[in-house]
Amino acid sequence: MSKPFDMDLFLAGVLTGSHATRQRHVRQAKIIQAEIAKRWQLETPWAWQKKHVTWFLKHHLSHRSEATSYYYLLTVRLLARRLGTSWLFYL
Results as ranks from 00 to 15, higher is better:
63 H>S: 14
63 H>R: 13
45 P>S: 06
54 T>F: 00
42 L>H: 05
50 K>L: 01
67 A>G: 09
64 R>C: 15
59 H>M: 07
48 W>V: 02
69 S>E: 08
73 L>D: 03
65 S>D: 08
49 Q>Y: 05
60 H>P: 03
53 V>I: 08
41 Q>K: 11
66 E>D: 13
63 H>G: 09
68 T>W: 10
49 Q>M: 13
50 K>P: 01
59 H>S: 11
73 L>M: 11
45 P>A: 04
51 K>N: 06
71 Y>V: 06
66 E>R: 12
52 H>D: 06
71 Y>H: 15
59 H>C: 06
70 Y>D: 09
63 H>M: 07
43 E>A: 14
68 T>Q: 12
50 K>T: 01
53 V>S: 01
66 E>G: 10
54 T>K: 04
60 H>Q: 13
67 A>M: 10
59 H>Y: 12
51 K>R: 15
43 E>D: 14
53 V>L: 03
61 L>E: 09
70 Y>L: 11
60 H>S: 09
44 T>C: 07
57 L>W: 00
73 L>Y: 03
68 T>G: 10
55 W>N: 08
46 W>N: 08
47 A>D: 13
56 F>R: 03
57 L>E: 01
49 Q>N: 07
64 R>P: 04
53 V>E: 01
52 H>I: 04
60 H>K: 05
73 L>V: 07
46 W>A: 12
63 H>V: 07
61 L>H: 02
42 L>R: 08
65 S>W: 05
53 V>Q: 00
65 S>G: 15
59 H>D: 13
55 W>H: 13
53 V>N: 03
51 K>S: 13
69 S>W: 00
65 S>M: 05
67 A>Q: 14
55 W>E: 07
58 K>M: 12
47 A>W: 05
42 L>G: 03
50 K>D: 02
68 T>A: 12
61 L>M: 11
72 Y>R: 01
53 V>M: 00
62 S>Q: 15
67 A>P: 03
41 Q>E: 12
45 P>D: 01
50 K>G: 00
68 T>M: 12
45 P>Q: 02
46 W>K: 10
50 K>V: 02
61 L>I: 11
49 Q>W: 04
72 Y>K: 00
56 F>M: 13
42 L>S: 05
68 T>F: 08
57 L>K: 00
58 K>L: 15
48 W>A: 02
44 T>M: 04
65 S>R: 03
69 S>G: 13
65 S>E: 10
71 Y>P: 02
57 L>Y: 01
55 W>F: 14
43 E>R: 10
56 F>D: 08
41 Q>N: 11
55 W>K: 08
42 L>Y: 03
52 H>N: 07
48 W>G: 00
43 E>W: 06
47 A>M: 10
60 H>L: 05
53 V>Y: 00
69 S>L: 04
70 Y>T: 08
65 S>K: 05
54 T>N: 03
69 S>F: 01
62 S>K: 14
58 K>C: 09
60 H>W: 11
62 S>R: 14
58 K>W: 07
44 T>R: 10
43 E>F: 08
62 S>A: 15
72 Y>A: 01
49 Q>E: 15
48 W>P: 02
50 K>E: 09
43 E>G: 06
54 T>H: 01
58 K>Y: 10
